[in-house]
Design a protein around this nucleic acid. Sequence first.
DNA 1: TATTGTTATACTCTATAACTATA
DNA 2: TATAGTTATAGAGTATAACAATA
Lengths: 161, 161
Amino acid sequence: MAKRQVREEAEPVAVSDAALTRFLGYHLKRAQTVLMGDMNAAIAPLGLRMITYSALAMVAENPGLRQSHLADALSIERPNLVVILDDLEERGLISRDRVPTDRRAYALMPTLAGRKLYEEATAAVAAHEARMLAGVSAEDRAAVLRVLGAIRHGKGGEEHG
Amino acid sequence: MAKRQVREEAEPVAVSDAALTRFLGYHLKRAQTVLMGDMNAAIAPLGLRMITYSALAMVAENPGLRQSHLADALSIERPNLVVILDDLEERGLISRDRVPTDRRAYALMPTLAGRKLYEEATAAVAAHEARMLAGVSAEDRAAVLRVLGAIRHGKGGEEHG
DNA sequence: TATTGTTATACTCTATAACTATA
DNA sequence: TATAGTTATAGAGTATAACAATA
């Protein structure tokens, strides 16, 4: 609107990305941000976020799981898992049952409502990813999993400082 | 250490990931965390982090860049860029020069020290990524870039709510 | 003495509103 | 009135220390 000044850039301004596009870290971070933000939006109507869905999924498919094991599996710290499980428990999606043989620990169990929401959410997540990967070939999908696995596991054997 | 109780799990405890491994978001987040953490460690000796390196790289290869354009290019908010540039400027790696034709804006310029550090850091980053992708084929690397690009750009044309 | 879950806390990252100085 | 850069601030996400109960 208005009269348009003597400026070259009214459009997005083409800034060269060339300095960064050579690096996988750049692409990985951007894609991760977009995918997770979009996935969070996709399951927000169910009252879930990615981390919350992940915890629910693990409990649903590994009934009896201990909190410390779940934290390890999700690669998060034990203290940070507490509030996530508080949320799921308060909403009646999981329960924390005392373990008779080790009264320090809790066995995490999905409730019926938890299982139901897990299935709904899983369908939503699958649909979301199908949409995100609509134009991607099966070969490329497989390749991505190989590379992401290599990044995730490749580390640790190379340097230790 | 000590006597070993009557417990099945002294080792890492095999918890099934199956509930999550079907989803790309899971792999993407893990890989991103590992890669970025590792890259940050790789360039920490140079006093840089990934975001800090990215900003320096963009300035080095796009001298005269404005802050708002840089923020757009890095997909970060303008206010968050300020402290990053403060850091680079205080260390004498970039300068903020007034733009004569628009005295509101700053033209970001790399200093000589900035260019030098950028080249060092670029070598470190490239070496780091080469290490991370050591066992990955050229085809798989290309496939990853295709898929990450699809995720990053694929969004936005599908839904708008 | 070590471990499970918890609390408190801190540090980073990210996001928004509002200010200033210019346009 | 709108824009560039800034300030202040709030919210996630992530990390560590330390505590109570239990092993």
